[in-house]
Amino acid sequence: MDTDLTSVTLQHMMHRLSPNVRRAWNHRVDEMRLEPRIIFDYELLYVEKGELTIRLAEETIVAEPGCIILFKPGKEHEFYSSRGECWMPHIHFDVLYYDDYEQVPINFKNRNDCSKEELAWLRPDILGEVFKFPDVFRIGNHAEVHKTLMQIIHAYERRDAESPLLQKSLVLRIIYLLLKGMKAKENVHLVQHQRAMEQAVTYMMEHYNETVPLESLSKIACLSVFHFSRVFKQTFDLTPHQFQIRYRIEKSKELMMFNRLSLSSIAEKVGYSNVYSFSKAFKQLEGVSPREFLRTYSRITES
């Protein structure tokens, strides 16, 4: 894989993720110390009990219960000390598939002691550079991360034929939970209005073929029009109008693929007054006209 991540977007990388768990361990010790080292992959550690003093490159942190630590490829770290019995469920994993996946060991040496061949195992830091993940997470949904982490550990320990697929899906869930936790921490008010936004967006989806005024949506959410619009955009990364257009276009694609209807009928069913307005919105979002989409889909189904 090309390790130049400067031009890779988050949306593009989310489609490429294919995690593999190298090791999963429900680690519990009375005292925790670890000499300086680097690792070639990622390690995600959840502090369930106890307290850890850890050096991450030049920074020293104290990790308490609920704290999540992401050790990144090639970043030196060491465990200075601990306090109390330490429960530290953790996993080692890659976020992309690599042909040498099974050859890469868990490393316990510092960079200077690693051979050139060993350093070639270093993975690019996708989660840090593209997803902007920090080394330490202190997020409100940490309990969900812990629950999912334990599910990965149990799947890893079972080692049945299907467990790699389950582990892969659970790592993706953890990445999703970390993203959502970061977003909620940056915008605390989003958590307060989460239920209201879900009610408003459900109403929009149920009435996608109608003109739904912002005033009506803001009343459902019990917010002012200005406040509703701002919170909606921060929650879904789209304005209410953009969300409705996107949902209408997705519904129109379903109708084109599974029904023998004219484009005029489809336009009417998804809330457009005429086929021209529908075609313009479709092309702006999809990059092709509805007729071009239909031709492409027909070629695929006929081949």
Rank of each mutant, 00 (worst) to 15 (best):
H142L: 01
M1S: 15
F278Y: 11
E43Q: 10
K253E: 01
Y176I: 12
L44E: 14
I106A: 13
S289D: 04
E35P: 00
L149T: 05
L217P: 01
Q199W: 12
S303M: 09
L214Y: 07
E64I: 04
Q151M: 09
L238M: 13
R299P: 02
H154F: 14
E250T: 03
P213T: 07
P105K: 11
A24K: 02
K168E: 00
I69M: 09
L172M: 12
V231A: 03
L294W: 03
R23Y: 15
M88L: 13
R248H: 00
I126E: 12
P105M: 14
V275E: 03
G287T: 10
E43D: 09
Q244S: 12
R159H: 11
E129S: 09
I61P: 03
L178G: 03
S218E: 05
D99A: 09
F131M: 02
S252K: 03
R16T: 04
I68K: 07
I153G: 08
L70G: 03
Y156K: 05
L52M: 01
L149N: 02
E51Q: 13
A196Q: 00
Y101G: 06
V95H: 06
R123G: 06
Y203L: 08
L149P: 04
E43M: 08
L34E: 08
K185S: 07
I300W: 06
Q244R: 06
K180A: 09
N209T: 01
D100C: 00
T202V: 10
I38D: 08
N26K: 00
T235Y: 08
M1C: 12
E64V: 05
E64Q: 10
P213L: 01
A120P: 01
H12M: 12
R111Q: 15
V62S: 10
V188P: 13
C222H: 15
E268K: 14
Y46S: 08
A267R: 07
F93E: 08
F79R: 11
L122W: 11
M150T: 14
V8K: 10
I175K: 03
V225C: 00
K49S: 04
A221P: 03
K75C: 13
